[in-house]
Design a protein around this nucleic acid. Structure first.
Length: 211
DNA sequence: CACCAGGCAAGTA
DNA sequence: TACTTGCATGGT
């Protein structure tokens, strides 16, 4: 299975190229994006991030201080703005109060289980926590989402159960623990599903046909 | 008009 | 444990 998953990765990389998920952005922007993109298209999230950046709000301390109503106005385009305002405030408060507003301190925290720490924050579930761990904090965890589930179900790689932890264990048990690989693999699965498995499935043209 | 998008928490059975 | 529902904008 290990070789099969690596072969699939090579095909996806060849087909779609590097996805450049969250390159050249600050870790805080990644964290904000991870929350804002919950059940929301990335396009709508980009507008919100741009608005926050223009307003000079993309720092832990500025986000900590800003009024809820003001924050909500800037992230309006990403939907669920009242909910997401509270969720951003929740995680920013932890970074501010417990890590001196430093993402580096959060990243380098080796004493407690960082994943559990994130999951304890209201509004941070497994996918958001793992996206933050992988894409913002450079931790080797495999991110699972609705696309990943569809990918596993559609390609006969895995028989279930289709629970988050089981699917994650499948990938992490059958791949080398590598930040770059986990980062790119997840993004490539999304690209595959968006191009071939989503609306009007094009399974006949799927680059993984026969794999 | 309907449906979906890089989920989560709270409620129900 | 396994559903169901509210949250909300913007694109197709």
């Amino acid at each position: 299975m290990r070789q099969r998953l690596l072969k699939i990765f090579d095909i996806l990389l060849e087909t779609f190229g590097k996805r450049h998920w969250w390159p050249g952005e600050t870790a805080l922007e990644v964290i904000v994006g991870a929350v804002l993109t919950q059940n929301t298209s990335w396009k709508n999230v980009e507008k919100a991030i741009t608005s926050l950046r223009s307003a000079g709000l993309l720092s832990v301390d500025r986000l900590y201080e800003v009024e809820d109503a003001v924050l909500a106005r800037h992230i309006r385009s990403s939907g669920y703005y009242n909910l997401k305002t509270a969720r951003l405030k929740n995680i920013v408060k932890v970074i501010h109060d417990e890590y001196m507003s430093s993402i580096e301190h959060l990243r380098n925290n080796g004493t407690s289980d960082l994943r559990e720490k994130l999951l304890d924050i209201k509004g941070i579930g497994e996918e958001t926590a793992d996206s933050i761990l992988l894409y913002a904090l450079d931790k080797p965890v495999f991110v699972i989402d609705a696309y990943t589930k569809r990918f596993l179900a559609n390609h006969g790689l895995y028989g279930g159960p289709y629970r988050y932890g089981d699917m994650q264990a499948f990938f992490m048990g059958n791949l080398p623990s590598d930040i770059y690989l986990f980062n790119e693999y997840h993004a490539l699965i999304v690209a595959l599903c968006q191009g071939y498995c989503l609306k009007s499935p094009r399974c006949g043209e799927c680059p993984l046909k026969g794999q």
